[in-house]
């Protein structure tokens, strides 16, 4: 009866072949080959075969690009507006002209770092942060440079901040009468020192016309009536304070007919008298010598 034989229960024992194959698979080398090596090989081969066709590569690339575009163009990622905080109107307008963005634009297409670098390249800008804020706003926060001195060169006048960085050009000195004037070669690279000297010169502020850098090494304090105080290279502030102290003494040297107060040797201040005073002085000496 063939039916009966088919109904016979299957032998639970593994056949010799199955048993041997299983033992082979349990040896570490073949086990690693089957569980790791072959699958990895198959996946790699599948990729290689898939990508070997140029058309298929293009299809894949286009598909990826499409998906990417679709996500980028979603309204959640669109930027519609630019705000500039902390900048004066002129600077703001300049920034707007520097960053030509056609709104609306996807935030993925904005290179915020490059924008920041562009903005910071402006003379008037000390630092800037650029970020896309919620609501699709491109926010640029600017901290401007504060002009500290007016700098006169052969080409014209410019404003410098406390560190000597150029802020903006000015047309006339009288545009910014509140700021002190510096001039001379190398003046712009020693602005902090110049500011210290100007701070020390506060008692004679009314008479101060400006500071001149002489020989790219030291400062001359220019006062009205063409008086000048020649300061040393080293420690000019102390020298200036000494002059001011002399001025505040009853002699009031700066009120007299003195052209130069020479402090280039701080331990030996030297005065150059004006022509009238010098003649008078000489006459006095001659008189003293002649009469005696």
């Amino acid at each position: 009866m063939p039916q009966m034989t088919r109904l016979r229960r299957r032998d639970p024992a593994p056949s010799r072949l199955v048993y041997r194959v299983e033992r082979v698979l349990l040896t570490p080398f073949y086990r690693g080959l089957v569980t790791t090596g072959l699958p990895v090989l198959a996946v790699v081969m599948a990729f290689v075969l898939l990508l070997s066709d140029a058309n298929r590569r293009d299809v894949i690339r286009n598909f990826v690009q499409d998906v990417r575009n679709e996500i980028e163009q979603r309204p959640e990622f669109m930027v519609r507006l630019m705000t500039i905080d902390g900048a004066t109107e002129d600077v703001g307008a300049e920034i707007r002209s520097l960053i030509p963005v056609e709104f609306p634009v996807s935030s993925f297409d904005l290179d915020l770092d490059a924008m920041r670098v562009t903005v910071e390249k402006l003379d008037a800008v000390a630092s800037a942060t650029v970020r896309v804020r919620s609501g699709g706003v491109l926010g640029i926060e600017v901290s401007e440079r504060v002009p500290a001195v007016v700098w006169r060169t052969g080409a014209g006048l410019a404003l410098l901040d406390a560190k000597g960085h150029q802020v903006a050009p000015v047309d006339e000195r009288s545009d910014r009468p509140d700021l002190p004037l510096i001039l001379g070669d190398g003046a712009e690279s020693n602005v902090p020192e110049a500011l210290a000297v100007i701070a020390a010169a506060r008692p004679i502020e009314a008479r101060l016309r400006g500071l001149r850098r002489v020989g790219e090494r030291r400062w001359d304090v220019m006062l009205d009536r063409d008086q000048r105080i020649m300061l040393p290279e080293i420690d000019p502030v102390t020298a200036l304070e000494a002059v001011i102290a002399m001025n505040e003494a009853p002699q009031e040297i700066l009120a007299r007919d003195v052209v130069h107060v020479d402090m280039r040797r701080p331990d030996r201040p030297t005065l150059r008298l004006g022509p009238a005073a010098a003649a008078d002085h000489r006459r006095t000496i001659a008189f003293e010598m002649g009469e005696n």
Binding site: D11, P12, A13, P14, R16, Y19, E22, R23, L26, T27
Partner: peptide, 18 residues
């Protein structure tokens, strides 16, 4: 032999070692 094979095979399987 079949019975021994069965026992050895499943013990090996559990031990994951030949």
């Amino acid at each position: 032999e079949r019975a021994i094979r069965t026992a050895v095979q499943s013990a090996q399987k559990m031990a994951k070692v030949r």
